[in-house]
Simulated scan of single mutants.
Amino acid sequence: KTKHTRLWTREQQPPPMAKLGEGDDRWIVKEREDGRNVNNWHWSETSYTEWAREKLGARFEGVAIGDGTRSAGKLLSLETMKGDVTVQSRKQKRFPLYELELTIRWEGQLFDASGGTAVEAKGRIKVPDLSEETYDDLEMTVLCDEETDAKRPLKELVRKEGGKAVRAACLAFVRELKETVMKGHEPPPQKAPPRERFNAGYVAASAETAKTGAVKVVYSYNPPPHVLYETLLDTQRIRGITASDASMSTEVGGKLMMFSGAVEGENAELKPFDGERAVIKWKWRFSTWQPSHWSTVLITMVKQDDGSTKLTLEQTGVPEDERERTERGWKGMLFEPMNAMLGGRVIGA
């Protein structure tokens, strides 16, 4: 007979199981409001836009420009901030995405020989693009509310010294943003727009889906069209590119699933490379949209003279309040990782 070794003697009892609230924190499931995204393992997105508005506003308020001898100026305030700042989370890794357009108010004075104010001017500094690609080499335009020859020296002062101050403030903001994300700090909660519940998941309200917009993204890739066509329909390649679960199909009518279920769809039309172009058309939706609401994604891959591929994605029927999120997702979660894998660049949108 086979002998079995006891784990405990008759006098001993097995160790008691941990009581609720006393277990090892590493095994405690956290942030399970809907039970679908434990510890941010799957893709999720958190808005830092209002946090960014507050931080940038503080950095531009009352910043002195010039030495104060013959002229003086200062940055007054952040007048407008357009765009979004979000933090993407996937497999417990967090990284920020931001594309901002800024307008900063300024004022300045020129002094006469006695130290009195001879000329005063006010205006704006416009930063058209603050993003991960531009933050260390910002372009900006200095405008004066009233352009005159007398005020031109002040405008030049703001262009030189004010430009330095704006760049320094933006660099400091980006460092603070990345440090905040690395430390796992969350922004103060923001009031969410009205939502409806469906199968324990939040979806865009039916009134919101009536307003739709379009998304367009254009990339240039080094490989020829047939490589991109095969990549976008291959389950294993999409899993590798997105670092999440996926299920793709090479048949018309075949179902697709990406980002561990965050995206679902169907192949509506497939045209393999014919020597000139390849086409993929998807019936596509986020799983958090209304169950009956679908968008249409058309991906066209055209061969260029040098053998590379111009890829154009055009998506219609996107709920208006989801349009920016959708465009960021295409760029940050699919096409940029494809760039890293295949080689290429964004050439328009």
Rank of each mutant, 00 (worst) to 15 (best):
G123Y: 04
L7T: 13
K122Q: 14
L56C: 01
W106H: 01
Y221R: 00
S244W: 01
Q236E: 15
V181Y: 02
T103M: 09
L256I: 12
N267D: 03
T316E: 14
K91F: 08
T134K: 06
W330A: 09
R70G: 12
T69M: 05
D306N: 13
R36Y: 11
L97Q: 03
V318L: 04
E161R: 02
H42A: 14
I28T: 15
S308N: 04
M333D: 13
G68I: 01
F173L: 01
W289P: 00
A205K: 06
E176C: 03
G253F: 04
N39L: 12
Y219L: 07
T309R: 03
M333T: 12
E251I: 11
G254P: 03
L20N: 08
N267L: 08
W289A: 05
K310N: 09
W8E: 11
L102K: 00
E230S: 12
E54N: 10
E251H: 06
E120I: 08
G115D: 01
R323V: 13
K151L: 11
G21S: 08
T250Q: 09
F95G: 13
V85K: 00
E45C: 14
D129R: 11
A18N: 09
V346I: 05
E54Y: 10
E107T: 10
G329A: 05
T180D: 02
L154V: 05
G73I: 00
Q190D: 09
L342G: 01
P194I: 00
V29Y: 11
P14F: 07
G116L: 08
H4G: 10
R237S: 13
L256D: 03
T46V: 15
R70E: 11
F111N: 00
L334S: 07
D112Q: 01
S71A: 10
A113K: 07
G344W: 00
A268I: 04
I65V: 15
V174N: 04
